[in-house]
Design a protein around this nucleic acid. Sequence first.
DNA 1: CTGAAAGCGCTTACAG
DNA 2: CTGAAAGCGCTTACAG
Lengths: 335, 335
Amino acid sequence: MTGITLADVAKYAGVSTATVSMVLCNKGRISQSTRERVLKALDESGYVYNQTAANLRNRSSNQVGLLLHDITNPFYGEMTAGLSHEMERHELMLFLANSEESAERQQKFVDSLMRNNVGGMVLCAARETPQSFFDSLKRRNIPAIMVVRPLSDPGFDFVGTDNFLGTQMATEHLLKMGHRRIAFIGGSQNSGSRAQRIGGFTSKLLEYGITPNPAWIVTSQASQSDGARVAESLLTDNPEITAAICYQDIVALGVMQCLRKLNREPGRDFALVGFDDITEAALVQPALTTVSVAAKEIGRKAGELLYSRMQGNDEPAKRIILPPALVVRESCGFR
Amino acid sequence: MTGITLADVAKYAGVSTATVSMVLCNKGRISQSTRERVLKALDESGYVYNQTAANLRNRSSNQVGLLLHDITNPFYGEMTAGLSHEMERHELMLFLANSEESAERQQKFVDSLMRNNVGGMVLCAARETPQSFFDSLKRRNIPAIMVVRPLSDPGFDFVGTDNFLGTQMATEHLLKMGHRRIAFIGGSQNSGSRAQRIGGFTSKLLEYGITPNPAWIVTSQASQSDGARVAESLLTDNPEITAAICYQDIVALGVMQCLRKLNREPGRDFALVGFDDITEAALVQPALTTVSVAAKEIGRKAGELLYSRMQGNDEPAKRIILPPALVVRESCGFR
DNA sequence: CTGAAAGCGCTTACAG
DNA sequence: CTGAAAGCGCTTACAG
């Protein structure tokens, strides 16, 4: 706080505050000579614009919020980078909060955003978010874009990936390599993304005349260790399984570990596909074949949409579903 | 924007705005009955506090900024989570920006922060930051905590890890396992952290009577592929090297790839230590022995320090150096 | 214990 | 083309 206000600058330049303000915002018609005098005063005074005052006066805001449930997840790091970049382009400031899957902390953050009068927000809601959260969000009538986690509520804009198509591609890849006994490993029971991914998986199986076996579709937490745990019991009980689609790359990494423990080499004795294309996927041995969902692009698109909403775009709620891509690496072998 | 103001609530409750404000902030003495009336009005009206107005009036702010150069780096994701958690405890809103190593974007962000009148900031500055950036920051006289990347300027608070000690521990580990021909791979030429890590490395070598070989100390970009590239030429030219300390885990992962290409199995034919302890480190095969720097803790401590500065703590600038820990896994073998 | 009024630093009709 | 003045929604001395 230098403490120099627009009024000080005006006095110094010998004009009114209105004039300085207009020069600052490039509004109204100001004579060349006056403009120069003001610019000079602005420069020499070390004036710092007070956005807070402007926001109050304008009843507007240059601020938006991003709510994530896990910023440490590399996937969301990428997405955040994409969003942040987009926000910067529009001179918007980005508030970040990490709910850590707590509905309570999430609610608190959104309340803070409202008090801080943000212009909009991007949300990847916690798993156990009560419907009331979304209802109250809608009542506030402030632009909110949902990302990544599909929402059954069609009242919100959404940007995410085509989970269904993603696993269809992955499943087809395995089927074309000759696999017929394919498992689906991971995701939590109440996950909407998971339902969609299972949909892509089973529909493709059926297309090839294969009846999905419910016993081969198992849940897992989003960690390597739980992936390994779950896979171990599945594959010991059902050694005839030759391939698996995993709900997430992290889970796939766990399954890899488990395979080695069971003396089955991934990529040779067992084919594995992941989902997300996190950095690790390219690094493990064998490198993981996976469905890439362009996290950065999700962030960018969400930012774009949010900005347009803030500009007054009032088309009905929109769902932007980005096409996934199958990244073939080594974990399915080279047959 | 429901548009309901404190004045509306006051009218509704039949009191003055001063009274409502005092109830809201728990200041002054308000009779029980009045308080209840106000609380009821507050509740029924759906009033949303306008933090912007309060900030303007108070010439204060509940907002702080975090500037990173790469939010997609898992290390910074962890750090951000730690900081975010700490900020939440103090009811502070966190602005995030990603400079992507651009001094220009970094400057723009800090300028925005100033205009938005933040109470303080946490910075991990871009590599090529001009001294003028830091000078102007100091002139602003706003709390700023530097993190991770060591700064020669002692005028700033700093929170980071003990790079020197970290590589000392790593080097000692290798030496105790019998290695004598050890390389140092990675980091960029002008990195201060790297200088410190090399210091720990060479000082420990000397302690064991070994003269450091400058030809075995090579730079690399912060990517797996460049790590692999750099290691390949180093190890083909100097096959007698049996171990390496890597500047970062990502580089170490690249070195692993290269080793396989050269038909040397990491953990058996070659010992490898990383630095950072990113998630991947535990996942690769063999799991990477590395120096853990508690990224989350850096974020937390930075937040704590920032908060105390915002409360008026005016002790001289402080450096908080967190102790690293050597996490022994498999990449150095089990001899 | 409570209210009237000034003021935080901007912007914007409205005059001239 | 430029200025005087009101007002955004709070908080805080100051009276009473």
